[in-house]
Structure formats: C-alpha cells, structure tokens
Amino acid sequence: MKHLQLHNDIRQIPLLARFIETISREEKLDENLTMTLNLALEEAVANVMLYAYPKGTDGLVDIDAVIGRRALRFIVTDCGKAFDPTSTPEADTLSPAENRQVGGLGIHLVRTIMDEVRYERRDGKNILTMIKNI
C-alpha cells in the first residue's frame, strides 16, 4: 500500500500527479491509463481541497493506493464536512454550449474512469473508494 498526505492547498495538486506517476512507473501502466487515473484522483482530491473544510482553515486529505494483480484501489479520506459525491446528479454532457452547465464534470469523470466508486461516512470521515480493474 502506498500513501500520500496533502493539505487542503490546491497548489499541492502536482504532488498527487507525481504520486500517480510513480505508481504507474512501478506497475508499468500505459500512458493513457496513467493519465485517466491521474485525472480521476485529481478530481476527487481537488473536491476535498476546495470544499471539505471551511475557508481559511487547514485540513488534510489522505490518499491510499492498494495495488492488486487485477485491480487498483484508491481511497481518499478527509475529516471535513459530510459529502457523498456519488449521490450527485449526472452531469450534463449533451446540451449545446449555450445551455451547458459547468458543474458536476469532476465526479462525472471519476465515475466514467473508475469501475467502482463507493462512499462511506465513518468516524467523522469521508471515505471515497475508487476501483479500477486492470
């Protein structure tokens, strides 16, 4: 299992990209899979960084990666306010530009890229588990 801890500072997002790239190199994942995993993780983590904690307060986000032979499991944990991203409505990906809403694309990407996305609230923590079959 690999672990990364970040603060709720969006400028730390490049550290997450490096974390995923290291896993990708070690597991010999292809370039496209690396990019999409990076994207799904960034969307989940950025959401926590931007919205989980009250503005101006320091908070942490933990990322665990469990590498299996057939699947990669990523667990994103924070102690911010309860929020279940899996309960949000589907993003609009069909309307013409004039009517297209700009929100909800992040979780849409997570759902599209990952094979399974699970949320639970436990001990005052948001725990988002994302599984990608390989």
């Binding site: 990209a17 990019m35 960034e42 950025a46 530009a97 004039e98 700009v102 694309l105 992040g106 849409h108």
Partner: peptide, 19 residues
C-alpha cells in the same frame, strides 16, 4: 499535456463568451 474539469470549465466559458 493534460486537462482536468477545472480547465474544461475555463474553455467552456471562453466558448460561451465567444458565441
């Protein structure tokens, strides 16, 4: 080399304004 949803939102805004 890479774009996330926040980048997509920026270019959608550019698209809407241009139109």
């Amino acid at each position: 080399t890479y774009i996330s949803s926040s980048g997509l939102r920026i270019i959608l805004t550019i698209r809407k304004d241009a139109t």
